[in-house]
Protein backbone atom coordinates (compact mmCIF):
# COMPACT_ATOMS: atom_id res chain seq x y z
CA UNK A 1 0.00 0.00 0.00
CA UNK A 2 1.29 3.46 -0.91
CA UNK A 3 0.48 6.84 0.61
CA UNK A 4 0.41 10.01 -1.53
CA UNK A 5 0.14 13.31 0.35
CA UNK A 6 -0.92 16.51 -1.43
CA UNK A 7 0.68 19.66 0.04
CA UNK A 8 1.51 23.18 -1.14
CA UNK A 9 3.06 25.44 1.48
CA UNK A 10 0.97 28.37 0.28
CA UNK A 11 -2.78 28.01 0.68
CA UNK A 12 -5.29 28.27 -2.13
CA UNK A 13 -3.12 26.81 -4.88
CA UNK A 14 -5.67 24.05 -5.50
CA UNK A 15 -4.65 21.13 -3.24
CA UNK A 16 -8.19 19.99 -2.58
CA UNK A 17 -9.39 20.42 -6.18
CA UNK A 18 -6.41 18.42 -7.43
CA UNK A 19 -6.95 15.75 -4.74
CA UNK A 20 -10.62 15.43 -5.74
CA UNK A 21 -9.62 15.07 -9.41
CA UNK A 22 -7.08 12.35 -8.57
CA UNK A 23 -9.73 10.57 -6.49
CA UNK A 24 -12.06 10.62 -9.50
CA UNK A 25 -9.30 9.41 -11.83
CA UNK A 26 -8.07 6.65 -9.53
CA UNK A 27 -9.76 3.42 -8.66
CA UNK A 28 -10.72 2.29 -5.20
CA UNK A 29 -8.29 4.27 -3.09
CA UNK A 30 -8.93 5.40 0.47
CA UNK A 31 -9.10 9.16 0.94
CA UNK A 32 -7.99 11.21 3.94
CA UNK A 33 -8.46 14.90 4.64
CA UNK A 34 -5.66 16.06 6.93
CA UNK A 35 -6.53 19.76 6.70
CA UNK A 36 -8.27 19.37 10.04
CA UNK A 37 -8.31 23.16 10.58
CA UNK A 38 -10.44 23.77 7.50
CA UNK A 39 -11.43 20.52 5.81
CA UNK A 40 -13.03 20.89 2.38
CA UNK A 41 -12.55 17.61 0.51
CA UNK A 42 -15.97 16.29 1.61
CA UNK A 43 -17.63 19.22 -0.20
CA UNK A 44 -16.78 17.76 -3.62
CA UNK A 45 -16.96 14.03 -2.90
CA UNK A 46 -20.64 13.67 -2.02
CA UNK A 47 -20.14 12.18 1.45
CA UNK A 48 -22.81 10.24 3.27
CA UNK A 49 -23.10 7.79 6.13
CA UNK A 50 -20.92 9.78 8.49
CA UNK A 51 -19.68 7.99 11.59
CA UNK A 52 -18.24 10.65 13.85
CA UNK A 53 -16.20 10.05 16.97
CA UNK A 54 -15.25 12.74 19.46
CA UNK A 55 -11.58 13.71 19.42
CA UNK A 56 -10.46 13.91 23.03
CA UNK A 57 -6.97 15.21 23.61
CA UNK A 58 -5.19 16.97 26.40
CA UNK A 59 -6.72 18.81 29.33
CA UNK A 60 -8.03 22.26 30.19
CA UNK A 61 -7.75 23.87 33.61
CA UNK A 62 -10.95 24.97 35.36
CA UNK A 63 -10.92 27.00 38.60
CA UNK A 64 -13.55 26.04 41.18
CA UNK A 65 -14.54 29.55 42.24
CA UNK A 66 -15.94 28.37 45.60
CA UNK A 67 -12.59 26.88 46.64
CA UNK A 68 -10.41 29.66 45.18
CA UNK A 69 -8.72 31.95 47.71
CA UNK A 70 -7.98 34.62 45.07
CA UNK A 71 -4.25 34.39 45.80
CA UNK A 72 -3.31 34.83 42.12
CA UNK A 73 -0.54 32.19 42.14
CA UNK A 74 -2.03 30.61 39.00
CA UNK A 75 -1.93 33.92 37.13
CA UNK A 76 1.66 34.48 38.27
CA UNK A 77 2.82 31.04 37.06
CA UNK A 78 0.85 30.70 33.80
CA UNK A 79 3.14 31.31 30.83
CA UNK A 80 0.25 31.40 28.36
CA UNK A 81 -1.71 34.40 29.73
CA UNK A 82 -4.62 32.03 30.20
CA UNK A 83 -5.67 33.19 33.68
CA UNK A 84 -8.07 36.11 33.54
CA UNK A 85 -8.52 38.37 36.56
CA UNK A 86 -11.97 39.89 36.83
CA UNK A 87 -13.38 42.17 39.48
CA UNK A 88 -16.69 40.80 40.73
CA UNK A 89 -18.50 42.69 43.52
CA UNK A 90 -15.30 44.46 44.54
CA UNK A 91 -13.22 41.26 44.65
CA UNK A 92 -10.64 40.06 42.16
CA UNK A 93 -11.69 36.65 40.86
CA UNK A 94 -9.65 34.37 38.64
CA UNK A 95 -10.92 32.39 35.67
CA UNK A 96 -9.24 30.27 32.97
CA UNK A 97 -9.57 31.35 29.34
CA UNK A 98 -10.10 27.92 27.74
CA UNK A 99 -8.86 29.07 24.31
CA UNK A 100 -5.57 30.38 25.74
CA UNK A 101 -5.07 27.43 28.14
CA UNK A 102 -2.20 25.24 26.91
CA UNK A 103 -3.20 22.29 29.11
CA UNK A 104 0.17 22.21 30.89
CA UNK A 105 -1.27 21.70 34.37
CA UNK A 106 1.21 24.03 36.13
CA UNK A 107 -1.61 26.00 37.80
CA UNK A 108 -3.33 22.75 38.80
CA UNK A 109 -0.16 21.45 40.46
CA UNK A 110 0.82 24.63 42.29
CA UNK A 111 -2.58 25.99 43.39
CA UNK A 112 -2.20 26.23 47.22
CA UNK A 113 -5.93 25.62 47.67
CA UNK A 114 -6.14 22.69 45.26
CA UNK A 115 -8.97 24.60 43.63
CA UNK A 116 -8.21 23.85 39.99
CA UNK A 117 -9.70 20.88 38.12
CA UNK A 118 -8.08 19.45 35.01
CA UNK A 119 -10.68 17.62 32.92
CA UNK A 120 -9.94 16.08 29.51
CA UNK A 121 -10.96 18.28 26.63
CA UNK A 122 -12.90 17.30 23.56
CA UNK A 123 -11.40 19.38 20.77
CA UNK A 124 -13.11 18.11 17.65
CA UNK A 125 -14.27 14.95 15.90
CA UNK A 126 -13.10 12.45 13.31
CA UNK A 127 -15.04 9.98 11.23
CA UNK A 128 -15.37 7.81 8.16
CA UNK A 129 -17.74 8.67 5.34
CA UNK A 130 -18.60 6.90 2.12
CA UNK A 131 -18.01 8.83 -1.09
CA UNK A 132 -18.37 8.19 -4.82
CA UNK A 133 -14.71 7.12 -4.85
CA UNK A 134 -14.26 5.10 -1.67
CA UNK A 135 -14.01 5.74 2.04
CA UNK A 136 -13.03 9.22 3.26
CA UNK A 137 -11.47 9.62 6.68
CA UNK A 138 -11.88 13.21 7.78
CA UNK A 139 -11.95 15.30 10.90
CA UNK A 140 -12.48 18.76 12.25
CA UNK A 141 -10.86 20.55 15.13
CA UNK A 142 -13.06 22.86 17.14
CA UNK A 143 -12.53 26.52 16.32
CA UNK A 144 -9.72 27.87 18.49
CA UNK A 145 -8.45 24.42 19.49
CA UNK A 146 -4.90 23.08 19.36
CA UNK A 147 -3.34 19.63 19.00
CA UNK A 148 -3.86 19.38 15.26
CA UNK A 149 -0.76 17.21 14.83
CA UNK A 150 -2.26 14.38 16.85
CA UNK A 151 -5.58 14.55 14.97
CA UNK A 152 -3.73 14.50 11.65
CA UNK A 153 -1.78 11.44 12.79
CA UNK A 154 -5.02 9.78 13.85
CA UNK A 155 -6.68 10.48 10.47
CA UNK A 156 -3.69 9.00 8.63
CA UNK A 157 -3.64 5.92 10.87
CA UNK A 158 -7.35 5.33 10.36
CA UNK A 159 -6.98 5.78 6.60
CA UNK A 160 -4.18 3.20 6.45
CA UNK A 161 -6.28 0.84 8.54
CA UNK A 162 -9.28 1.32 6.23
CA UNK A 163 -7.08 0.76 3.17
CA UNK A 164 -5.69 -2.48 4.64
CA UNK A 165 -9.21 -3.69 5.45
CA UNK A 166 -10.49 -2.83 1.96
CA UNK A 167 -7.43 -4.15 0.14
CA UNK A 168 -6.85 -0.70 -1.38
CA UNK A 169 -3.36 -0.07 -2.73
CA UNK A 170 -3.36 3.72 -2.29
CA UNK A 171 -4.15 6.22 0.46
CA UNK A 172 -4.66 9.68 -1.03
CA UNK A 173 -4.17 12.45 1.55
CA UNK A 174 -5.28 16.08 1.18
CA UNK A 175 -2.93 18.06 3.42
CA UNK A 176 -3.02 21.42 5.20
CA UNK A 177 -1.24 24.62 4.11
CA UNK A 178 1.90 25.95 5.82
CA UNK A 179 4.94 24.11 7.17
CA UNK A 180 4.02 23.84 10.87
CA UNK A 181 2.87 21.04 13.15
CA UNK A 182 -0.08 19.66 11.10
CA UNK A 183 2.00 19.67 7.91
CA UNK A 184 4.86 17.80 9.57
CA UNK A 185 2.33 15.30 10.91
CA UNK A 186 0.90 14.91 7.40
CA UNK A 187 4.12 14.13 5.58
CA UNK A 188 6.37 12.08 7.87
CA UNK A 189 6.71 8.57 6.51
CA UNK A 190 4.66 9.18 3.33
CA UNK A 191 5.72 7.44 0.10
CA UNK A 192 5.36 10.53 -2.07
CA UNK A 193 4.37 14.17 -1.68
CA UNK A 194 2.65 16.03 -4.52
CA UNK A 195 3.33 19.75 -4.15
CA UNK A 196 0.62 21.81 -5.84
CA UNK A 197 1.93 25.26 -6.69
CA UNK A 198 0.84 28.14 -8.90
CA UNK A 199 2.79 30.69 -10.94
CA UNK A 200 3.14 33.49 -8.39
CA UNK A 201 6.11 34.80 -6.41
CA UNK A 202 4.51 33.96 -3.04
CA UNK A 203 3.76 30.40 -4.20
CA UNK A 204 7.33 29.97 -5.46
CA UNK A 205 8.71 31.28 -2.15
CA UNK A 206 6.52 28.86 -0.19
CA UNK A 207 7.33 25.97 -2.53
CA UNK A 208 10.98 26.34 -1.54
CA UNK A 209 10.11 26.12 2.15
CA UNK A 210 7.79 23.11 1.92
CA UNK A 211 10.36 21.36 -0.29
CA UNK A 212 12.98 21.96 2.45
CA UNK A 213 10.61 20.44 5.01
CA UNK A 214 10.04 17.35 2.84
CA UNK A 215 13.80 17.01 2.44
CA UNK A 216 14.23 17.34 6.22
CA UNK A 217 11.99 14.27 6.63
CA UNK A 218 13.44 12.47 3.58
CA UNK A 219 10.12 12.22 1.71
CA UNK A 220 10.34 12.32 -2.12
CA UNK A 221 8.35 15.07 -3.87
CA UNK A 222 6.88 15.80 -7.29
CA UNK A 223 5.40 19.13 -8.37
CA UNK A 224 2.22 20.18 -10.14
CA UNK A 225 1.99 23.74 -11.51
CA UNK A 226 -1.68 24.63 -11.26
CA UNK A 227 -3.27 27.55 -13.19
CA UNK A 228 -0.02 27.56 -15.17
CA UNK A 229 -1.26 29.92 -17.92
CA UNK A 230 -2.08 32.77 -15.48
CA UNK A 231 1.61 33.68 -15.59
CA UNK A 232 3.57 31.58 -18.12
CA UNK A 233 6.85 33.36 -17.30
CA UNK A 234 6.63 32.35 -13.63
CA UNK A 235 5.48 28.85 -14.58
CA UNK A 236 8.72 28.48 -16.52
CA UNK A 237 10.65 29.86 -13.56
CA UNK A 238 9.07 27.28 -11.24
CA UNK A 239 9.89 24.52 -13.74
CA UNK A 240 13.47 25.79 -13.79
CA UNK A 241 13.61 25.81 -9.97
CA UNK A 242 12.35 22.21 -9.97
CA UNK A 243 14.90 21.14 -12.58
CA UNK A 244 17.73 22.68 -10.52
CA UNK A 245 16.47 20.90 -7.42
CA UNK A 246 15.98 17.59 -9.23
CA UNK A 247 12.22 17.56 -8.61
CA UNK A 248 10.02 16.08 -11.37
CA UNK A 249 7.22 18.36 -12.63
CA UNK A 250 4.41 15.88 -13.19
CA UNK A 251 1.75 18.30 -14.38
CA UNK A 252 1.02 21.75 -15.75
CA UNK A 253 -2.70 22.39 -15.34
CA UNK A 254 -4.19 25.38 -17.20
CA UNK A 255 -6.54 27.73 -15.35
CA UNK A 256 -10.15 26.75 -15.92
CA UNK A 257 -12.94 29.18 -14.94
CA UNK A 258 -15.22 26.13 -14.68
CA UNK A 259 -13.28 24.98 -11.59
CA UNK A 260 -15.50 27.22 -9.44
CA UNK A 261 -18.64 25.92 -11.12
CA UNK A 262 -17.53 22.34 -10.54
CA UNK A 263 -17.07 23.13 -6.85
CA UNK A 264 -20.53 24.67 -6.66
CA UNK A 265 -21.92 21.54 -8.35
CA UNK A 266 -20.12 19.49 -5.66
CA UNK A 267 -17.94 17.50 -8.07
CA UNK A 268 -14.35 17.51 -9.31
CA UNK A 269 -13.37 19.24 -12.54
CA UNK A 270 -12.63 15.95 -14.33
CA UNK A 271 -16.25 14.95 -13.76
CA UNK A 272 -17.78 18.38 -14.43
CA UNK A 273 -15.85 19.15 -17.61
CA UNK A 274 -14.13 15.93 -18.74
CA UNK A 275 -13.33 17.36 -22.19
CA UNK A 276 -11.59 20.49 -20.84
CA UNK A 277 -7.83 21.00 -21.31
CA UNK A 278 -7.44 21.12 -17.52
CA UNK A 279 -9.15 17.71 -17.14
CA UNK A 280 -6.88 16.25 -19.81
CA UNK A 281 -3.81 17.66 -18.05
CA UNK A 282 -4.99 16.20 -14.73
CA UNK A 283 -5.48 12.78 -16.33
CA UNK A 284 -1.98 12.87 -17.83
CA UNK A 285 -0.54 13.93 -14.48
CA UNK A 286 -2.26 11.02 -12.73
CA UNK A 287 -0.41 8.59 -15.00
CA UNK A 288 2.91 10.25 -14.14
CA UNK A 289 2.13 10.15 -10.43
CA UNK A 290 1.31 6.44 -10.64
CA UNK A 291 4.68 5.91 -12.23
CA UNK A 292 6.42 7.94 -9.51
CA UNK A 293 4.56 5.99 -6.80
CA UNK A 294 5.57 2.68 -8.31
CA UNK A 295 9.25 3.64 -8.15
CA UNK A 296 9.16 5.47 -4.78
CA UNK A 297 11.44 3.75 -2.27
CA UNK A 298 9.64 2.01 0.57
CA UNK A 299 9.87 4.30 3.62
CA UNK A 300 10.64 3.00 7.06
CA UNK A 301 7.89 2.76 9.62
Amino acid sequence: MKELVVLSGKGGTGKTSVTAALAALGAGEVLADCDVDAANLHLVLGTHGEAAHPFVSGHTAVIRTDDCSDCGECARLCRFDAILAETVAGRIRFRVDPIACEGCGVCVHFCPSGAIDFPSSTCGWWGTSRTRFGALIHAALDVGAENSGKLVTLVREQARKAATAAGADLVLVDGPPGIGCPVTASLTGADLVLLVTEPSLPALHDLGRIRELARHFAVPVVVCINKCDLNPRLSDRIAEFCRDQGIPVVGRIPFDPLAGDAQIAGVSLVEFAPESPAAAALAAMWEDIRGALATAPQPKG
Partner: peptide, 29 residues
Amino acid sequence: PGTTCPAVEALRGADFALLVTEPTPFGLH
Protein backbone atom coordinates in the same frame (compact mmCIF):
# COMPACT_ATOMS: atom_id res chain seq x y z
CA PRO B 1 -4.87 30.51 7.55
CA GLY B 2 -6.81 28.09 9.70
CA THR B 3 -8.71 28.49 12.95
CA THR B 4 -6.38 26.89 15.48
CA CYS B 5 -3.60 28.18 17.73
CA PRO B 6 -1.57 30.24 15.19
CA ALA B 7 -4.67 32.04 13.89
CA VAL B 8 -5.89 32.60 17.46
CA GLU B 9 -2.55 34.13 18.43
CA ALA B 10 -2.63 36.50 15.41
CA LEU B 11 -6.23 37.60 16.08
CA ARG B 12 -5.90 38.05 19.83
CA GLY B 13 -6.18 41.72 20.80
CA ALA B 14 -7.38 42.90 17.39
CA ASP B 15 -10.10 45.56 17.32
CA PHE B 16 -11.53 44.29 14.08
CA ALA B 17 -11.19 41.21 11.87
CA LEU B 18 -11.29 41.64 8.13
CA LEU B 19 -12.20 38.21 6.78
CA VAL B 20 -11.21 37.57 3.18
CA THR B 21 -13.17 35.01 1.18
CA GLU B 22 -13.92 33.98 -2.38
CA PRO B 23 -17.24 32.95 -3.94
CA THR B 24 -16.67 29.19 -3.84
CA PRO B 25 -18.03 26.50 -1.51
CA PHE B 26 -14.51 25.99 -0.07
CA GLY B 27 -14.12 29.71 0.57
CA LEU B 28 -17.53 29.99 2.19
CA HIS B 29 -17.16 26.85 4.31
